[in-house]
């Protein structure tokens, strides 16, 4: 009995190693971008993998392990931050953002990665989460909806608004750094 249990444990460990561990970098990066703190991102990434390991018997082999891990990640983050990107709080934010979005401006060419990250970190987390999942991690709308536990339509609207916001922030960040080499535009 004990031998059978050990053997099952080893099989699970091998599966976890092969299916879950390769996504550590993705999980850490997303956590860092969502939380805005690398130290907290480390803790949350560790928590994600511990939770995943504890419930790995419920993970269905052959399904999308990466999406499953992201779902756990957003669950952890949501739990951590008192579910601050759930709907009731969002509606007001979304409406406010939508009403205050300026017309998109061209993004300067010579903006750095650090400035892109700075702009990304500056947009509200509910939009940032969707931009990260769809534009960076390349999840389908449906997968992103599953990960965030929101309707597909909400994913699409947040993505659209998130992208506009990000462009706006990028322009602001570039301007604050005195970057004015905008493709197709005239220097200030």
């Amino acid at each position: 009995m004990a031998r059978a249990s050990r053997s099952a444990e080893n099989t699970a460990a091998r599966r976890f190693e092969a299916e879950a561990m390769p996504h550590l970098q993705d999980i850490y990066r997303a956590a860092a971008r969502i939380l805005g703190q690398r130290e907290r991102a480390e803790d949350v990434a560790q928590e994600v993998f511990l939770r995943a390991w504890k419930s790995f018997d419920r993970f269905e082999e052959g399904t999308n392990c990466r999406a499953w891990l992201f779902k756990i990640l957003f669950h952890c983050v949501s739990h951590e931050r008192r579910r601050w990107f759930r709907f009731p709080l969002l509606k007001e934010t979304e409406e406010f953002v939508e009403a205050n979005l300026p017309a998109p401006e061209p993004i300067p060419d010579d903006i750095s990665d650090a400035q892109i990250l700075q702009a990304l970190d500056a947009i509200p987390v509910e939009f940032r989460a969707v931009v990260l999942l769809v534009d960076v991690e390349e999840f389908a709308y449906k997968e992103a909806a599953g990960i965030l536990a929101i309707p597909v339509g909400t994913v699409m609207s947040r993505l659209s608004r998130g992208r506009k916001l990000l462009r706006e922030r990028l322009t602001d960040v570039a301007r604050s750094y005195g970057i004015g080499n905008v493709a197709g535009g005239s220097p200030a």
Partner: peptide, 26 residues
């Protein structure tokens, strides 16, 4: 820009260590 951020090498070790201490739930 996003993918350029890498997890510290110690994180993987830390996670593996934590996993080794906990049995998978049955």
């Amino acid at each position: 820009a996003v993918r350029g951020v890498e997890a510290p090498p110690s994180l993987e070790t830390k996670i593996r260590g934590a996993l080794a201490d906990r049995p998978v739930s049955r």
